[in-house]
C-alpha cells in the first residue's frame, strides 16, 4: 500500500499539489484522473521521489519514504516498476537489452535465465520477435509495451504508470489496461495509473482519484463515477456533446 499524507508540492510560487492525501491499496488498479495540467504526473513523481515534495509524507507499506536517506530510497526503488508518459526506453539499447537492464544491474542470474525472463516479460505484453529492434524502430504502442515489460522484469511490488495508453488506439489501450490489471491481481502489486482516458476509467477503475487543479476533488469506483454528484467530475466524464446527451438520458 502506498499512502500520501497532506502532500504539498510547489515550484517557486506555483502550487501544483495542494494538500493531497490518499491511499492506494495493494492488488487493486488505482486510477488517478484529471485534466491535462492538473498535477497527475507531478503526483506520481513525488511519490517516487523524482521531485522533492515541499511538505507532507509518502509511505510505502509503513515506511516513510521521503525522509529516508539515499540508500534507503534505493532499496524501495528497486521494488518499483515505473512506466513513463514518454516510455523512456534507453535508446542506445535494443528491446532485449532494455528489458534485461534491471536484471543485469541487480541480479546474479545467468545469461540464460535472464534471457528466459526477458522473453517471458515480452510475451506477457504480446511482443515477440522484436528482441533485436532498437527503440527508434518501434511504434508508440510497442514502446509502451516494452516499457511495461521492463517495468515488470524485476517482479515489482509497486507499479506506477503515467498514461500507459496515451496516444494508442482504443483497442490497444484496452489490451494494455487489462494487462496491467491482470498483472496487478496476479502478483498482488500496488498499482497506480495516471490517465485521462475515460475508456480506461470505466474498464479497470477499481479505485479512482480525481484531481482538479492540484487537489483531490473526488474519490470512488468506476460504478460510482457516472453519478458522482460532483460538478467537476461530471464536466470531466461527460466532456463531449455525446456524453452530455447520455447524462441527460440517465437523469
Amino acid at each position: 500500500m502506498i499512502e500520501v499524507k497532506d502532500v504539498v508540492m510547489a515550484f517557486g510560487d506555483k502550487t501544483v499539489l495542494n494538500h493531497v492525501s490518499t491511499a492506494f491499496d495493494r492488488g487493486k488498479t488505482n486510477l488517478v484522473i484529471g485534466r491535462s495540467g492538473s498535477g497527475k504526473t507531478v503526483l506520481l513523481k513525488s511519490i517516487v521521489g523524482l521531485v522533492q515534495v515541499t511538505s507532507g509524507e509518502i509511505w510505502y507499506d509503513g515506511a516513510l519514504f521521503n525522509k529516508m536517506d539515499f540508500a534507503g530510497q534505493k532499496e524501495i526503488r528497486k521494488q518499483i516498476g515505473m512506466i513513463f508518459q514518454g516510455s523512456a526506453l534507453f535508446d542506445s539499447l535494443n528491446v532485449q537489452q532494455n528489458v534485461m537492464f534491471p536484471l543485469d544491474m541487480f541480479t546474479t542470474m545467468s545469461t540464460n535465465e535472464k534471457l528466459e525472463r526477458v522473453n517471458f516479460c515480452l510475451c506477457r505484453v504480446s511482443l515477440e520477435n522484436v528482441n533485436q529492434l532498437m527503440p527508434a524502430e518501434l511504434s508508440g504502442g510497442m514502446k509502451k509495451r516494452v516499457a511495461i515489460a521492463r517495468a515488470i522484469a524485476m517482479n515489482p511490488k509497486y507499479l506506477l504508470c503515467d498514461e500507459p495508453n496515451s496516444g494508442l488506439d482504443p483497442q490497444t489501450s484496452i489490451i494494455i489496461d487489462n494487462l496491467i490489471k491482470e498483472i496487478t491481481e496476479e502478483y498482488d502489486i500496488t498499482t497506480i495509473i495516471n490517465t485521462h482516458d475515460m475508456n480506461s476509467v470505466l474498464e479497470i477503475g477499481e479505485k479512482i482519484t480525481f484531481i482538479y487543479e492540484g487537489r483531490i476533488e473526488w474519490e470512488g469506483t468506476k460504478d460510482e463515477i457516472l453519478n458522482s454528484q460532483n460538478q467537476y467530475v461530471d464536466n470531466f466524464v461527460f466532456a463531449s456533446g455525446m456524453g452530455k446527451k447520455i447524462k441527460n438520458m440517465m437523469v
Binding site: L89, F90, P102
Partner: peptide, 17 residues
C-alpha cells in the same frame, strides 16, 4: 541531455541505479 529530457535518467533513478 537527450537522456534527461526523454526521462531516461529518471528511469535509471527509479530502478535504483
Amino acid at each position: 541531455g537527450t537522456m534527461r529530457v526523454t526521462e531516461q535518467i529518471d528511469a535509471l533513478e527509479i530502478m535504483g541505479v
